[in-house]
Write a protein that binds this DNA or RNA. Structure first.
Lengths: 214, 214, 214, 214
DNA sequence: GATGAATGAGTATTCATTCAT
DNA sequence: TATGAATGAATACTCATTCAT
């Protein structure tokens, strides 16, 4: 039993070792220009070993995105449970979470959208695809809860909570993505934080239920 | 001269012929899986000919995005000149323009973000890159004008117009992208239109300058 | 028309050029150890070019066998038409044809049997497979005609001609194969010719219709 | 000693266990497509263990053929000792033995010829190669004895017994191989038995010494 | 002996790009 | 200009084999 468990943990450690190396290489070179050999070298493993842990290059790549989704999901769940915060505070905390992810690695968000292209999706194992779907849905669901609460309390406008959650998610992804793009093209300084905050202000103002709307 | 001009026009016609073919093929297969031969066949030309009009595959690909930017730019300029519309009407018209582009080809938006990845950017000719930057900036600038007008008239909140334009642009791109992704993953019905409209409502409400904000 | 035809001929010339090179390399190294690059070098072409003419390695390999079948088929047809020969003379001439093929390249017969393995067959194009089947059947059919004639004339025993043709084909293939094997294992001198002749004597004696069989 | 012996027997048991598994896998997938891991799984052992009993994949493969040769050799020896049978009866019994082998596994005969290719032979250990040669020669020698006996008794034609034995061996291998091939290509019903019997009739008739040959 | 995780050499195949016609 | 045959560099992936445990 102990042995079984230790092996399992060792295996997971290897997966992480590879994922970390892959993140570095993919971030630097992008999906196409990064070779499996590059990643193997970065992970100080042989190319063959990569295939013991990941079906193929695309699945390794997708696993990066999954990891981000997992992180986001944890943050979202955490925010939900913060009973001290009201809906507006929770929204703000969510935004912080998104900022944290992208601050951690601005390129990863661009790469993550690569994942969505249908050409990629077809090569993923059903299991991985299911995990991604599941995690996305659970995160959106959790965010929707916040809106639901806000709507019930008459703080937010009365729209479908899932739709609001989708829009929240999409808008802030969009802002992050756009700012990341600008940064790459112009090699600008980084305006993500103030821009995100302004976007949040606009969004929040837009969803507040006001008497004069009646 | 007449001959010179006719040749020039003929050349432009070919470019368009190729771009149209490329759009079809890239949309169907994505950047990686689409081959130059596929595109040549679709355009009823030989592979070699493509290289008479485009430096390489990436540049051909980027030209697609440029074309969309051009279209958007025309629409934006048009909206600006609509003197009958107030700022709120203009914003709404802008949103319609964005919807039109993505409705025309939902996949192209995902592919367009591919463009942003730094791996791609490095292979573009300076001229093309300059054109893309220029067009982006002009479009954003034009949108900023609308906000400027709105701020001056006390209709919109008093924030920096370019920042507002960026956020507008990014948010709606984000929504379109997210809806497109959902459509691909879940093969859902298409909720883009109502989602976009809700997003617009939220955004618009958020930027309205209200007395009770004072 | 002339151009079309010249191109066609040029293309066929290239195929032959590749086949000749492939024969040399496969004979020397066997299927597995021969690489496409080896063959390309031998043919003084680039690896990519091989794939313009052959779907893959296995199909190139199979084309070798097809070429032998074609040669055999021509010889068989020729023998059939030799009106001066009686059935026994024709059989003898057939045997000579088989000998000629294998004398030309003793290894090719071993390689040819490689073709039969089901693992190989699955990777061939339908067209090639059809050609192989067709040629085998036509050759066997032609041989069967000889037996038919012999049976009608009361020279050969009265068995089904196709069965006799099959057995003829198989027996002499077997002898050739066995002698080739012995040659490889023991690096013996070559006893194929006398052995084949003895085998032929035995076979021929065995199928002669005799009074004392009655 | 007892322990030593038991170990020896245990070791032999393992070898057989592996060979049986290998036979199944090679028959199903052919030499190239069968992996050592496939075989290890089939044998319920780990890949590493296979290498404790066989030098490499090719040697494991060759061991299969050796096993068949051993079986055939036993049958041949047995036939030789059947004093009740005359030469013609013995020949018939031999043919039955060959049929038995191939009936047991029609694919193995095709695979067995794979062995002969020079690329394979070079990777075998001297010991294994010696065993194969030895067994082949002893079997052929034993068959030759039958012919010798027949020639002495004036039953068979007066040719060199080893040559006759070779031809016998080769012809029937050829028939078996050809029938197996036809079965694979056309997925025909199995005509091996009647074809073999006809072949035998022809062969036997051909080697009988007759007065009218004088 | 047995394991099975790790290795890493080896290669078929693809496809953007070129250039002789 | 247009062609399209030829190129050949580039690489994902496999699997026989090893060796630390």
């Amino acid at each position: 039993m102990g042995i079984q468990e230790r092996k399992e943990r060792e295996k997971e450690r290897r997966r992480q070792q590879i994922i970390v190396a892959a993140k570095r290489v993919f971030s630097e070179k992008g999906f196409n220009k990064a070779t499996m050999e590059d990643i193997a070298k970065e992970a100080e493993l042989s190319p063959g070993t990569l295939y013991l842990y990941f079906k193929n290059k695309e699945e390794l790549y997708a696993s990066l995105s999954l990891r981000i989704l997992q992180y986001l999901h944890i943050r979202v769940e955490h925010v939900i449970k913060e009973t001290e915060l009201d809906c507006r505070g929770k929204l703000k905390a969510l935004m912080e979470a998104m900022y944290d992810v992208y601050d951690f690695d601005p390129l990863i968000i661009i790469n993550m959208f690569h994942l969505q292209s249908s050409e990629t999706l077809k090569n993923l194992s059903d299991q991985l695809l299911a995990e991604i779907k599941n995690l996305s849905q659970k995160s959106i669901g959790a965010i929707a809860e916040i809106f639901e609460e806000g709507i019930e309390q008459g703080i937010f406008i009365d729209r479908h909570p899932v739709a609001l959650a989708d829009i929240f998610w999409a808008m802030f992804s969009g802002v992050v993505l756009w700012e990341a793009s600008k940064k790459i093209i112009n090699e600008n300084k980084d305006y993500l934080k103030p821009t995100l905050e302004t976007a949040f202000y606009i969004f929040e103002s837009g969803i507040l239920a006001r008497k004069d709307d009646a």
